[in-house]
């Protein structure tokens, strides 16, 4: 019997607490008149960045597409004869009508190429306009990570970096040397 009274009272108290909200100010931000503050690590629109030398950072390793839980990233690797042994995506497509902005692609990316930026204003009237190709995704800056250059660390040879010229690399081994 006691419990019943407590339940009944709690119901009424709950009603009263909610009713009191009539006199408080709404917390709603009146977008778009009022622009909200988005933290720099906000997971919004996806971009492909370039390394400090201005080359595409994406090496078409397919990890973002594998990490994507909605399978909305697809790409095809190609080798660029201009930049020797430097792999790049022949196409890179994100279907934003499927994207859930979870940021797994950014986490998976080993070269900091794919990044989510604080921009969410992507609405379109036609769904097909939400399919972004590489031209739409590629920006000309480094995004959030300014100094990282995968090919400086990777050990493979590229046009502008011979074997042994990268960071933490010894000069190529001389096979013919018998020195201990």
């Amino acid at each position: 019997m006691m419990n019943t009274w407590i339940y009944a009272r709690n119901l009424v108290v709950g009603l009263w607490i909610v009713f009191k909200r009539t006199f408080t100010k709404p917390v709603t931000v009146q977008y778009p008149e009022e622009q909200p503050y988005l933290p720099p690590r906000w997971r919004g629109r996806i971009v492909l960045t370039r390394d400090p030398d201005g080359e595409e950072r994406c090496v078409a390793c397919y990890l973002c597409s594998a990490a994507c839980p909605v399978d909305c990233i697809s790409l095809q690797a190609a080798d660029n004869p201009e930049a020797h042994e430097r792999r790049y995506p022949e196409f890179f497509r994100i279907n934003f009508s499927r994207c859930i902005y979870c940021g797994m692609c950014e986490e998976a990316c080993p070269t900091n190429a794919i990044q989510l930026i604080p921009d969410f204003e992507q609405s379109e009237y036609a769904r097909r306009n939400l399919v972004y190709e590489k031209e739409d995704l590629l920006i000309s800056g480094t995004g959030k990570y300014h100094d990282y250059n995968f090919y400086r660390m990777a050990g493979v040879r590229t046009r502008d970096k011979d074997k042994g010229q990268g960071e933490h690399e010894l000069p190529p081994v001389d096979v013919k040397s018998l020195m201990p």
């Binding site: 909610v18 009713f19 909200r21 009539t22 408080t24 100010k25 709404p26 917390v27 709603t28 009146q30």
Partner: peptide, 8 residues
Amino acid sequence: LGVWQERY
């Protein structure tokens, strides 16, 4: 509902 949930 908005009023009671502190929104518009």
